[in-house]
Design a protein around this nucleic acid. Structure first.
Length: 248
DNA sequence: AAATCTCACAACCGCACTTGA
DNA sequence: TTCAAGTGCGGTTGTGAGATT
């Protein structure tokens, strides 16, 4: 409880923080986040470090728009597994659960808005004004009429029991999606599975360097050394395809 | 050209699960 | 076996950029 008196930093990561994190992950692997958070001198929680790494800094990440194949794969897998974003992400090389989650959110919003327009072209008089264009609560998708149902809770095994909250089931939604978005040309699964993609994360977490670090864990004395190297120069040449800092 | 809206994304939070002492 | 710490996951929120009015 008293562990975090130091007020960890929050908010957007700076370039410097990213560089430090990347280098410490290279040194210590992408598992001991609390340790990394401490020895790196970043004033961040381990969780925050992990998140930054997983969602942004990991070299295996693919950036940019989802391809149609990916989109369909997401739809398929979500139909199968529901909001198991991390599970879904493992089938999408270079995509993170967060990314897929975000994609789903906006995708489903679009889809359901479209659907609403189609379903209730005239009867919506009383609702239309507030339906799809509500300012904050995008309730068009969240089925919030009774109780709190997440925006994402639109399908899948675990969430299925919520599916008919508003008289409009997941089946309906999926049919809608299938018809509008998924112009199936070929089975999606094969696209990735045939390439034996079952990605965790492809590049960095190589067992070799990670196991070799075992000895490093014992080097308490090195902690101080580590943090001093952080603001010096780095043994790794960190580059990222789409660096957030490169914009300026 | 300015105001407003929508989208896309990064990041945080809380809870659940795992692991090690 | 129990408990605490660490980690992972899903949900949610905040914000900047681009599009639209």
């Amino acid at each position: 409880m008293n562990m975090m008196q130091e007020e960890n930093r929050k908010g957007p990561w700076t370039e410097q923080e990213d560089i430090i994190l990347v280098n410490f992950v290279h040194l210590f692997g992408d598992r001991r986040w609390d340790f990394i958070a401490k020895v790196s001198g970043l004033n961040r929680t381990g969780k925050s470090c992990r998140l930054r790494w997983v969602n942004y800094l990991h070299p295996g990440l693919k950036r940019g728009k989802m391809t149609p194949q990916e989109e369909r794969l997401v739809l398929e897998l979500h139909a199968k597994w529901g909001n198991r974003w991390s599970k879904i992400a493992r089938k999408l090389p270079g995509r993170t659960d967060n990314e897929i989650k975000n994609y789903w959110r906006t995708h489903m919003r679009k889809k359901t808005q479209e659907k609403k327009r189609h379903v209730s072209p005239s009867s919506s008089c009383s609702n239309c004004c507030s339906s799809s264009m509500t300012t904050t609560n995008t309730q068009d998708v969240s089925f919030q009429s009774s109780g709190k149902v997440s925006f994402y809770d639109t399908g899948g095994n675990r969430e299925m029991n919520q599916e008919t909250k508003d008289g409009y089931s997941m089946d309906d939604i999926w049919k809608e999606i299938d018809h509008s978005a998924v112009k199936v040309t070929q089975p999606v699964k094969d696209i990735y599975l045939e390439q034996s993609y079952c990605l965790s994360y492809p590049t960095l977490a190589s067992p070799s360097w990670e196991s070799s670090l075992d000895s490093v864990w014992k080097m308490d004395a090195d902690k101080s050394k580590m943090s001093s190297f952080a603001d010096d120069q780095f043994p790794f040449c960190f580059q990222h395809s789409r660096s957030p800092w490169s914009s300026g």
